[in-house]
């Protein structure tokens, strides 16, 4: 095992796809507050009840804040990107 800085790592297509969906929703004039906040760290801030971290574990960060309305917005403008099998 060694420290190996990663080079030429591309952003995964799934992340690009969801971002494109968010953009599409924003361009379409959707007024859902989530779209207005997209890209801001506050959109993914955990609700108060999960802000106290469980000690011994730093990974629990999942948020359920208004997930349903967020998802509705995203899925409304979903853009599917097909993987190139040669990649």
């Amino acid at each position: 095992m060694k420290i190996t800085p990663s080079k030429n790592h591309k952003k995964p297509l799934y992340a690009i796809g969801i971002a494109a969906a968010l953009t599409a929703a924003a361009v379409s004039g959707c007024t859902n507050p989530f779209v207005q906040l997209a890209g801001e760290t506050t959109t993914s801030a955990a609700p108060t009840e999960t802000e106290v971290e469980l000690d011994g574990d730093v990974a629990i960060e999942q948020t359920e804040t208004k997930r349903e309305s967020v998802v509705e917005t995203i899925t409304a403008g979903i853009v599917t990107i097909t993987l190139n099998p040669n990649q």
């Binding site: 992340a15 969906a21 967020v70 998802v71 853009v79 599917t80």
Partner: peptide
């Protein structure tokens, strides 16, 4: 590095299978 590679491979697969459900689960 290992975790990111495996997670991204899974993410790509799930996104291709069902983008709507993928968004519901992860966005």
């Amino acid at each position: 590095r290992m975790l990111i590679e495996i997670s991204d491979n899974l993410g790509e697969e799930l996104y291709q299978i069902d983008p709507d459900r993928f968004a519901k689960e992860f966005a």
